[in-house]
């Protein structure tokens, strides 16, 4: 790692001030950023650790909405969201491994927008609201391609707000070495619509499979997906773990399984 200073503010306001320094970078749970720093792929002058901000760690239900503080770990979401939103708790419970889930945070995952991260698929499928220290951003406007988001320099994800679906499930086809999804699909059924968020597959990062959403809105069954044409394989990631065509095929398979498993 290159040398840098580290600060540990205890409030969002202090963190925002600390991030005003040139080349300062926020540090969530660090489960992606620390390995990145070790490879010298980033050279911040200062890291602003968000882990000491108690106000950013919570899972709160407010009517039909589940609000999760940006600093909440995957392990906490897995436990505390289980009764309110089992689909999301199930997603969180399968990120990384137990030690990673005790550090990694929802805000960090959403801010990094890794093309194979799990949370962005749920945020998109549910039409979540990404709350920052300055504004609220609709998920559809927030995710802007691989590692790209609507966040400005120094902006912090303080909360992610999910409308709780009637039924949902996350299906992850693991890349066996990294355990990241080779393809992950989050299916969320609401009274008036269905959301299908796909991660791990596309060259453009997380996306909504709108054809499946339309088909499932009329008939929420695996059969409704069966007749659909798979997303265009030429838009999909092709690497030694799987071709674009393979990933495109998996999207259909995982969506069907998600519909069948939704609870």
């Amino acid at each position: 790692m290159y040398a840098f200073e580290i600060e540990r503010p205890t409030s969002v306001a202090e963190a925002v001030t600390a991030l005003g320094t040139e080349e300062a970078q926020p540090l969530g749970g660090g489960q992606t950023l620390i390995p990145t720093l070790k490879q010298r792929l980033a050279m911040p002058s200062k890291l602003v650790a968000l882990t000491a901000i108690a106000d950013m760690k919570y899972v709160r239900r407010d009517g039909d909405t589940l609000a999760i503080g940006g600093g909440t770990t995957h392990g906490t979401v897995a436990k505390e969201a289980a009764t309110h939103f089992p689909g999301l708790a199930g997603l969180a419970a399968r990120i990384g491994d137990p030690a990673v889930r005790n550090r990694g945070t929802i805000g960090g995952s959403i801010a990094n927008n890794d093309p194979s991260a799990c949370y962005p698929s749920a945020a998109l499928a549910c039409g979540a609201t990404i709350v920052t220290n300055t504004r609220e951003i609709a998920a559809d406007d927030y995710f802007q391609g691989m590692f790209m988001t609507a966040l400005e320099e120094g902006e912090i994800v303080t909360e992610v707000r999910f409308p709780i679906p009637e039924k949902s499930a996350y299906m992850k086809f693991e890349q066996i070495a990294s355990r990241f999804p080779l393809v992950g699909v989050f299916v969320a059924k609401y009274a008036d619509r269905v959301g299908v968020g796909v991660t791990g597959a596309s060259n453009d990062g997380v996306f909504r499979w709108s054809e499946a959403e339309e088909a499932l809105a009329g008939d929420f069954s695996a059969d409704a997906v069966a007749g659909l044409t798979a997303p265009d394989a030429s838009d999909m990631i092709s690497d030694l773990h799987g071709t674009g065509a393979y990933r495109a095929h998996l999207i259909g398979v995982m969506t069907k399984r998600g519909v069948a498993a939704a609870s």
Binding site: I6, G30, A49
Partner: peptide
């Protein structure tokens, strides 16, 4: 995968 300073 955690900095010593974060264990304050």
């Amino acid at each position: 995968s955690m900095f010593a300073a974060e264990a304050e």
